[in-house]
């Protein structure tokens, strides 16, 4: 199995179940920043249609073996279920349930549709501004590098910086934003 095949299976499962979704993680970062490899496919699922995780998991039976128990992240208390592809390589998949966090809601509402030639499908991805805000909020070393990459590749002059600054102020991550901006070397 390739990562494309796994991503295709996940997106097909969402489509067949009528679950609105958004790819996040390295795919969102790679779209706007400096592409890097990943170990998993991260997808946010809308709860509008009811029990999205259960339904997508059922659709992926035989393709992905999911853990028995959902987990909650200690930053936002969002719900996550992790699985692993049954074929080799052992790619991970993480399903996140959309919840009532104001930023997460905003990010999902602003998501954009794009066509990927690799998976021959349209998919939904966050805006570059939302990738930056989310990465700064999570704040692990790789997240901070990812945020800086998106700022550097897109260029702050092309981004809606007031939007980014507004959420960073609410999340208390303005110092991380300033550090990321300072980490961009002169490009001329």
């Amino acid at each position: 199995m390739t990562i494309e095949q796994l991503a295709t299976a996940v997106l097909d499962a969402c489509e067949k179940e009528g679950v609105h979704h958004m790819l996040t993680g390295a795919f969102a970062h790679g779209l706007y920043g400096i592409p890097r490899s990943t170990k998993d496919v991260d997808v946010v699922l809308s709860v509008a249609s009811g029990n999205p995780i259960e339904r997508v998991v059922r659709r992926l039976e035989g393709v992905v073996q999911f853990e028995q128990q959902v987990k909650f992240d200690t930053l936002t208390w969002g719900k996550r279920l992790v699985g692993e592809s049954t074929g080799m390589p052992p790619f991970k998949i993480a399903l996140f349930e959309l919840f009532d966090d104001p930023f997460v809601q905003s990010q999902f509402q602003r998501r954009r549709r794009m066509f990927s030639t690799q998976i021959q499908r349209e998919t939904w991805l966050p805006t570059p501004e939302d990738v930056v805000v989310q990465k700064l909020r999570w704040g692990r070393s790789k997240d901070l590098d990812d945020a800086r990459d998106v700022l550097a590749v897109q260029g702050p002059e092309t981004l809606d910086m007031p939007y980014i600054e507004k959420w960073c102020a609410l999340h208390g991550t303005v110092p991380r934003l300033l550090e990321a901006l300072a980490g961009i070397p002169p490009l001329d």
Partner: peptide, 21 residues
């Protein structure tokens, strides 16, 4: 950074798939 700027979003996304495999 400059290399990534020369790529289209689709090309960058394609790189994520290729690099991962």
């Amino acid at each position: 950074i400059l290399r990534a700027r020369r790529q289209t979003p689709e090309e960058r996304l394609a790189d994520v798939f290729e690099l991962t495999n």
